[in-house]
Structure formats: C-alpha cells, structure tokens
Amino acid sequence: MSANPRLAALSEAGVSIWLDDLNRELISSGRLARLVEEYSVVGVTTNPTIFATALADGEAYADQVAELSKNGASVDEAILTLTTDDVRDACDVFMPVYEATGGVDGRVSIEVDPGLAHDTAGTVESAELLWRTVDRPNLLVKIPATDEGLPAISQVLAKGISVNVTLIFSVDRYRGVLNAFLTGLEQAREHGVDLSTIHSVASFFVSRLDTDVDARLDAIGSEEALALKGKAALANARLAHRAFESVRDTPRWRTLADDGAHLQRPLWASTGVKDPDYPDTMYLTGLVTEDVVNTMPAATLEAFADHGEVAGDTVTGRAEESEAVLDDLERLGISYPEVIAKLEREGVEKFVGSWGELTGTVQRALEKGE
C-alpha cells in the first residue's frame, strides 16, 4: 500500500513522525513495519507507562516471564531483559530507515530508571547499561532534563551514546539542555569520538502546559482569560524552537558541525490532545516546521491520517505573538515559572510512579510464573 497522503505531507514538511508506543505484539504482528510503510512512521519512543501497560495487558510476555522466573531473575533483571528485548527488536525493524536517513531517523528510545532523575552518576551508569544491552546504533537513551540530568547528558554524549533528553517544559531549561548537548559533543571530540555517530533529540512537552494553564484560566473566568485557553502550549513550543534556531547561528555550533556533528532536533512530546473541545490534531498542525520530530500516541496518529491538514510552516516567525501570549497570562496572574516548576515536579513524579507500576507488574508476573 502507498503511504497515507496526509501523513506523507506532514513528513515532507520536515516533521519526522514517531510513534509514542511500543509493545511486543505490535512488533511481532508486523503492524509496526506497516506503520513505517503506510503511515510514514520513522521512529518510536517508549517510557515506563507504555511498558507497564504492555506487560499488564498482553500475553506475549508470558513465556519469557516464566523462563525468567524459573531462572531466578530479580525484578530489575527481568525489567531490563523484557524492555530491552522489545527495543532491540524495534531497532531492527527501523534499521532500513536508520540507514536510509544517515542515522537521523529510524530511532527507538528507552528511558533510564526515573528514580535516578536526581542522581547524575546513577543516570550515566544506567545509560551505559542500556546502550550495551540493546547493542544497536539506532538506540536513543532517554535522560530527564533535571538539574542533575544535565551533566549526565553531557557525560553520556561524551561517551558516544546517542541521547533523547526528556521532560523539558520551559524555554530556560531547554537552553540548558542545548548547552549540555554542545558540552557533551565538545567532550566527545576531546576523547576522540567520531561526532558523526552521535545523534540527539530534545523532547519538549506540549499538551501538559495547556492542561494546567487552562484550569487556571477557567478559575479566573473572565472573557480575556477564556480567550487565552489552548494557546500557552503552542506559544511555549514556538519559543523553544527560536532557542533551537539561535544555536545554529553560533560559532560554537558551527565548529562542531565542521567536525561532523548533527544538530539536536526538537522533539514535540505529549502531543495527544487532552481537551475534547480542541481539534485532536492541534499539536501537530500547530508545530509544523523543518528539522523537528513529533512523537504521538496511536490515536493522534490515526486522527491525522484521517483528517489532518498541513498548512505550511506554523512555527517559524511566530515568536513575537508567542511572547505576547505568555505576557497576557502573566498579567492575569498566571506565573509561568510557577506553572513550569509544578509540571517539572509532576513529570518526574509521574514517571517514578509509572516505574513503580512497571516494577509491581513484573513482580506479580514473576511470582505467577514460579
């Protein structure tokens, strides 16, 4: 079958389409390969929530869990084996894309233990273990953009490991991520690592900002407040993109590029629409520009395939109006720093909670398999 024309148009506009989902049945049934062929999907992201859901709902893992249980595997050992096996198989599905795009796409992400979000050394160690275990060049190791995560990002990149930086909510934090990325490449160069082998994306979370800000606007209830609903997230992401563009113009970056380095592309994450009053593709159509990734849940992918529209670049040149949105929110008493701090805290807490859910699911499965 030919590629879906709506998704093909999104891809042609410069957006790499990645799926925010992975499970064993998706791989073994051939559906993932069909998404590559028919839906222009060129990558996959995962997280503990996705793995917990897959393990809880699917029978595809039963035999392997029973074998792990029989061999006396610990919960941590079982999680490592189960998740990295899926990721490795997905990497193999995407290997032709990886080769065709020179390593830019065809990527599969796996996250370090979220409990290490405030542990720099532990994060580096976990990233190295995941990189060795999956043993595929098209892997991306996900590291959260916490204060402790930033130096870990640099250290991991310096070792030649490709990184997906996750849980970015603010433009200021994103600037810190960009600096950590450049520092990591500079350190890699000092260590003699071939910069052309390193790739990175920076996952900027979108919809959660609207969810929080819209609730505050509803509480205010004025006509001015209600008119701002659904605007904060796109404005925030567009300002982040301006920060990305500014890096490309620096001598620091150009020196690295001359040595073969690849740009760290912005990745729009959390792009499923939470409010049913909004168009279900708004975080796709509103963030179209070149050299970006949009990782989306299956429902959002299907929605765009059905009725999504590409109306040119909807990001570049919109920084001024985006700043005006955040200024208007501030005038209404909605503090951007306060909202961001809350989202960052909740983001880590949610991933830690999901890891606990995953641990519990695997523990029960191991006990059942005994």
Rank of each mutant, 00 (worst) to 15 (best):
N71E: 15
N71K: 14
S74Q: 09
S74L: 09
A78F: 01
L80F: 04
L80K: 14
D86A: 06
D86M: 11
D86L: 06
D89C: 03
A90Y: 02
V93W: 10
M95W: 14
Y98H: 14
Y98M: 04
E99N: 09
G103D: 07
G103F: 08
G103Y: 13
V104L: 15
S109Y: 04
V112F: 00
H118T: 15
D119N: 12
D119Q: 03
T120E: 08
A121T: 15
T123V: 05
V124C: 01
A127S: 13
E128Q: 15
L129V: 15
T133F: 08
T133V: 13
V134D: 01
D135G: 13
R136L: 02
R136S: 01
P137R: 10
N138W: 08
L139I: 12
L140R: 09
V141K: 00
I143A: 01
A145F: 08
T146H: 06
T146V: 10
T146N: 05
T146W: 08
E148M: 11
A152D: 08
I153C: 00
V156L: 02
G160Y: 09
S162R: 05
V163R: 00
N164G: 04
S170Y: 05
R175P: 10
R175Q: 12
F181I: 10
F181P: 05
G184T: 11
L185V: 14
L185A: 11
Q187F: 12
